[in-house]
């Protein structure tokens, strides 16, 4: 596709596509009824989450299996400040993101010294531990009984946004995550992330401050995840630790990125849209077995396209070989 467009314009192609995408999303909203708006908003939410996991897990190669900790932390930050301090959501939202980023940097300094599955397990442990802390700070967080953000009356600094409002907020967050990813992937910083993913020793040997790069990336990833978590908390009104620190949220982020293609701009978007859409469609049409079917489809996708759809297409085009069997063989050694 890119080949038919003159070179000077090609630079602007992603921007043009992005603007078109946003316009389409806004247009789509007018055509949907309320329940569907909510479903599509959830898709945007997962697009933003998948893109933010992709920064640390995809580009930098540090599989953060405790990514939900930033989601939960952002959510609780917003809920607690809105409830106890009566902050406006528009103040709580950015600060929740910053709090999550600061937490990411704090735990990142020790954890990012670990590599591979050691890092994955350690982040998982931090997420579980943080949830326990949130449960035990029940004066502040309501503990296991949850906390309810005031959405009506005098106590509510910000009125509940409703399906249409959250649709827009999630869309903005998805676009923000996309912008960050797009800029990072082309920048000097993005090169450092990819170099670290490939070989950390070699990256350090060409002058890359690997510690700083990793911690910054983790903070950036935590920031975006925290923003989404804060929005989710407000959307849910009442939140519980079990739900906001649910491992399944991390798993979904990982699966979406892996299926779409990790370390790419488009991969997480495709993965998130495809998986959420499929999941919803199966739920409506095959209610009783929908998780079974979804699981089977995920397994098949991961077996056939272990590198993800976008990376597969890229390699297939280069090798002029679209055979899935050859692809499986290449990755199974």
């Amino acid at each position: 596709m890119a080949a038919v467009i003159p070179a000077p314009w090609r630079r602007w192609l992603p921007w043009a596509l992005g603007v078109l995408g946003v316009l389409a999303a806004l247009g789509l909203q007018t055509q949907l009824y309320s329940g569907q708006v909510r479903t599509v908003a959830t898709i945007f939410m997962f697009v933003a989450l998948a893109l933010s996991w992709n920064l640390i897990g995809g580009y930098t190669g540090y599989a953060s299996f405790g990514q939900v900790v930033f989601f939960g932390l952002g959510g609780y930050f917003a809920a607690v400040t809105m409830t106890h301090l009566h902050w406006s959501f528009w103040l709580a939202l950015p600060l929740a993101g910053l709090a999550a980023a600061a937490y990411a940097a704090l735990i990142g300094v020790p954890l990012l010294r670990l590599r591979g599955h050691y890092f994955a397990i350690a982040t998982l442990g931090v997420a579980e531990g943080t949830r326990e802390i949130v449960i035990n700070l029940d004066g502040l967080t309501g503990g296991g009984g949850g906390i309810t953000v005031p959405t009506v009356g005098a106590a509510a600094a910000t009125k509940y946004l409703g399906n249409d409002g959250f649709y827009l907020v999630y869309l903005v967050l998805a676009v923000l995550a996309l912008l960050v990813t797009g800029l990072v992937s082309r920048s000097k910083f993005g090169f450092a992330m990819r170099a670290i993913h490939q070989d950390e020793d070699a990256a350090a040997a060409v002058g890359i401050n690997t510690t700083r790069t990793k911690v910054l990336t983790y903070a950036l990833s935590g920031l975006l995840t925290g923003l989404v978590g804060a929005t989710y908390a407000f959307q849910q009104v009442t939140i519980y630790p079990e739900r906001l620190f649910d491992v399944e949220i991390t798993v979904l982020m990982v699966v979406m990125v892996v299926i779409g293609g990790s370390g790419t701009v488009l991969g997480p978007i495709i993965g998130a849209v495809a998986l959420q859409f499929l999941s919803e469609w199966l739920r409506q049409n095959y209610t009783t077995v929908h998780t079974l079917l979804l699981g089977a489809i995920i397994i098949i996708a991961v077996v056939l396209l272990p590198q993800g759809l976008v990376n597969y297409l890229r390699e297939a085009r280069r090798n002029r070989d679209y055979s899935l069997l050859a692809n499986v063989r290449r990755y199974r050694l």
Binding site: K188, A192, A195, H197, Q198, A203, A205, V206, G207, I208
Partner: peptide, 29 residues
């Protein structure tokens, strides 16, 4: 500067980009 006994290219980047990383992050970054 050093080389590694077992070559350590940055896969997923082109050869040119591999070298560019060093230029970007080197002493004259």
């Amino acid at each position: 500067a050093r080389t590694f006994q077992i070559v350590k290219p940055f896969r997923g980047m082109t050869v040119r980009e591999n070298v560019a990383v060093g230029v970007l992050y080197g002493p004259d970054g």
